[in-house]
């Protein structure tokens, strides 16, 4: 198969960047999208040009490292998978494929298609955990948890932190990412203890970092490789409301 690629090239964070056009031919339909980029890079290296920098690691759809905004969709044309799992048979021979980095104010471009997603770590550091230290823990079966709740919590926990929700959202909002973590813990008795503080701290950090606001477009849900539901956003909204109205402490930072 043959393709025309239009790829965002940007030398470093300070440079201006532009689209470059590349032609690539004889690609097997069984080749994965990232392998196609590997082949392109091999050709660029052979020509003495700098290869296209893109983030990738596990290549089995679980680490959340790969990104890429492909023809207007984060993680490309398929639903419910990451870029590394997209195969070229999903495209038509002769297609033009536009590849862009995630675009959001808190996700600055580092080079080419690589962006800085440290903002997600900062949100988690603001409270996306249960404050237990190692050791001195009661038996794992000491607290039974309703299966339905545990399963829902697992649904939320399956977030891989890739940032597709932010990339897809027309407002560059991180609500689904934040909500998934808030929801995971809000559903578990262990997590309820700090629930009021957690939701306020994480939302405040999300706002501070410059993510947009949620306008319930649900593009995040449509593009999430782990199909995390916007129901979790509603749960976070509820949690936040409860914390603001019912909580004694009003946490702004």
């Amino acid at each position: 198969m043959n393709f025309t690629l239009k790829i965002w090239r940007q030398k470093d964070a300070k440079s201006k960047g532009k689209f470059e056009k590349y032609s690539i031919s004889d690609i097997s339909p069984d080749c994965s999208f990232l392998e196609m980029l590997d082949i392109l890079n091999e050709q660029l290296v052979a020509r003495g040009e700098e290869p296209v920098a893109f983030d990738h690691d596990c290549r089995e759809g679980i680490c959340g490292t790969c990104s890429l905004y492909i023809n207007g969709r984060p993680h490309g044309p398929d639903d419910a998978i990451t870029t590394c799992q997209v195969h070229m048979r999903r495209f038509k021979d002769g297609d033009t494929i536009v590849i862009e980095p995630w675009r959001a104010k808190p996700f600055s471009v580092i080079k080419d298609l690589i962006v800085n997603r440290n903002a997600f770590d900062k949100i988690i550091q603001a409270g996306g955990f249960i404050s237990v230290d190692t050791g001195g823990i009661p038996d794992a079966n000491a607290i039974p948890i309703r299966k339905e709740k545990a399963d829902q919590s697992m649904d939320a926990a399956s977030c891989i932190g890739c940032g597709a929700c932010v990339a897809a959202c027309k407002n560059a909002s991180a609500m689904l990412f934040v909500a998934a973590k808030v929801s995971q813990f809000a559903l578990l008795p262990q997590g309820r203890i700090e629930a009021k503080e957690r939701v306020q701290k994480m939302v405040a950090k999300m706002d501070e970092l410059g993510f947009g606001n949620c306008t319930n477009t649900y593009a995040c849900e449509a593009e999430c490789p782990k199909e995390i539901s916007v129901e979790h956003i509603a749960r976070m909204n509820r949690e936040f409301f409860g914390a603001k109205v019912g909580g004694r402490k009003n946490i702004k930072k």
């Binding site: 249960i130 050791g135 823990i137 038996d139 794992a140 399963d151 697992m154 926990a157």
Partner: peptide, 17 residues
């Protein structure tokens, strides 16, 4: 024990264990 306390959503039986 540690992981459960951290909120790791391990699979559970209907009885909650």
């Amino acid at each position: 024990d540690q992981c459960v306390a951290q909120g790791v959503p391990f699979a559970r039986e209907y009885g909650g264990l």
